[in-house]
């Protein structure tokens, strides 16, 4: 199939055409175009499978990950790529996600999996090392949020707001570690925290990882309401 891709920035537009299978992704397409000699095409990418969160862009008007968006899923017509909003544009669709990471607190990035702890007795040889995996241990996995900034880009709030991802981080941390997250929780209730949310829930609709930040913001606001009734 022939595809036509337009990269639109404040400085103008650039048009590219390529032949590719509809199964290829937008990121694959940019890789094909660049390795074909287009030196001035810059974009962020790393894992190519939706784990790193670097390749977000506005694709036909919607913030999405380029590595998970197949060419064939976008219908006919020119595919329009724009840089994510609320981030510093470097060139083309490449941004520097500084504002996003300034807002994200350092939280525990691991959580329990659904998998069962293996309650199985084993003859364990004497092991001298601390902290290596044990068969009977409950498995842990990385958190779902890949810090891609799509939620922040999709959020219609225009006043100061730490953003849906930061609120989700804070809520998840307070549920996981209530005893050590009171300062963080207080941060979430500053004027540019959860109270700034306008309940559009675009964040939950756009999240490629099903984190549903809107749900976490609602939960955060509920904790204060519940607590508030006591006073």
């Amino acid at each position: 199939m022939m595809y036509s891709i337009q990269i639109k920035t404040q400085d103008g537009t650039r048009q590219y055409a390529l032949e590719a299978s509809p199964e290829r992704t937008i990121l694959d397409a940019l890789e094909i175009i660049r390795s074909g000699g287009e030196k001035n095409l810059h974009y962020r990418h790393s894992c190519h499978h939706g784990s790193c969160g670097t390749c977000g862009a506005v694709i036909n008007g919607k913030p999405r990950l380029m590595c998970l968006t197949r060419l064939g899923s976008l219908g006919a017509g020119t595919i329009v790529l724009e840089p994510l909003s609320k981030a510093e544009t470097l060139d083309g669709v490449a941004v520097f996600p500084g504002r996003l990471f300034d807002s994200l607190p350092n939280t525990d990035y691991l959580k329990n999996t659904d998998g069962s702890a293996a309650a199985i007795e084993l003859a364990v040889p004497e092991i001298r090392y601390r902290d290596i995996p044990e068969l009977g241990a409950k498995p842990k996995r990385l958190e779902d949020c890949i810090e891609c900034g799509l939620c922040t880009a999709a959020c219609p709030v225009s006043k100061d707001f730490i953003g849906p991802a930061a609120c989700a981080h804070i809520h998840i941390e307070t549920v996981k570690h209530p005893e050590t997250s009171q300062t963080l929780l207080a941060r979430a209730f500053e004027p540019d925290g959860a109270p700034a949310c306008e309940r559009a829930f675009e964040c939950s609709r756009i999240c490629p990882q099903g984190v549903a930040p809107g749900k976490h913001i609602t939960a955060l606001l509920m904790t204060r309401q519940v607590r508030g009734t006591g006073h």
Binding site: H45, S46, C47, H48, H49, A94
Partner: peptide, 14 residues
């Protein structure tokens, strides 16, 4: 030349 880890590193299965 690109973003950090955009060559081979980031694509590792981990």
């Amino acid at each position: 030349k690109g973003e950090l880890t955009s060559g081979t590193t980031g694509r590792h299965h981990g």
